[in-house]
């Protein structure tokens, strides 16, 4: 059996939290937006392109989570012979949790806003630009989470350390 240092195991949990929760939020959000878009396209075929745009927006949270998870793995788990301390492992969990939970809330919120915007646009096409603005707003929470995750990794000694 391969021996894994405690810190490395914790970093693996951090990577899992980062993509797991961000992906969950993104998936739920995108599902809600997609269901709304399918309804809109069923009534108006011209809504396809706009529906795709609104449905794609909640994808970003999963991308942020994926990036953080990759960074955590590249700088910890995938470095041959590197044994991470427990403290650094906890920093990795912090970074993963920052983007994971921020992405979860942001993704779900963005999905609801996107679905509602699709409904508004299919009712009144002039609502497209305003719908995009409202739908983009819940993105900020994911960006905060992403920034904090990066800062934790940089100043916690995981990146470039």
């Amino acid at each position: 059996m391969v021996e894994v240092a405690l810190g490395t195991a914790l970093a693996a949990i951090g990577a899992g939290i980062a993509i797991g929760f961000a992906g969950l939020g993104s998936g739920i959000g995108q599902g809600i937006a997609a269901a709304g878009s399918v309804g809109a396209v069923a009534e108006d075929e011209d809504m396809f392109a706009r529906g795709i745009i609104f449905t794609a927006l909640p994808e970003t949270q999963a991308i942020y989570g994926f990036l953080i998870a990759i960074l955590l793995m590249v700088f910890t788990i995938m470095v041959p012979g590197k044994e991470l301390s427990a403290t650094l492992g906890l920093v990795a969990i912090g970074a993963g949790a920052a983007i994971g939970f921020a992405g979860l809330g942001s993704g779900m919120g963005q999905g609801i806003a996107a679905s509602s915007s699709v409904g508004s646009v299919v009712e009144d096409p002039d609502m497209f630009a305003r719908g995009i603005i409202f739908t983009a707003l819940p993105e900020t929470q994911a960006i905060y989470g992403f920034l904090i995750a990066i800062l934790l990794m940089v100043f916690g000694g995981l990146l470039g350390g």
């Binding site: 937006a33 309804g39 809109a40 009534e43 108006d44 699709v118 299919v122």
Partner: peptide
């Protein structure tokens, strides 16, 4: 909210 997103989009299109 999930089960309502599809029917509501269709209804709002008709609205």
């Amino acid at each position: 909210m999930y089960p309502y997103t599809y029917p509501n989009a269709r209804v709002r299109a008709r609205k």
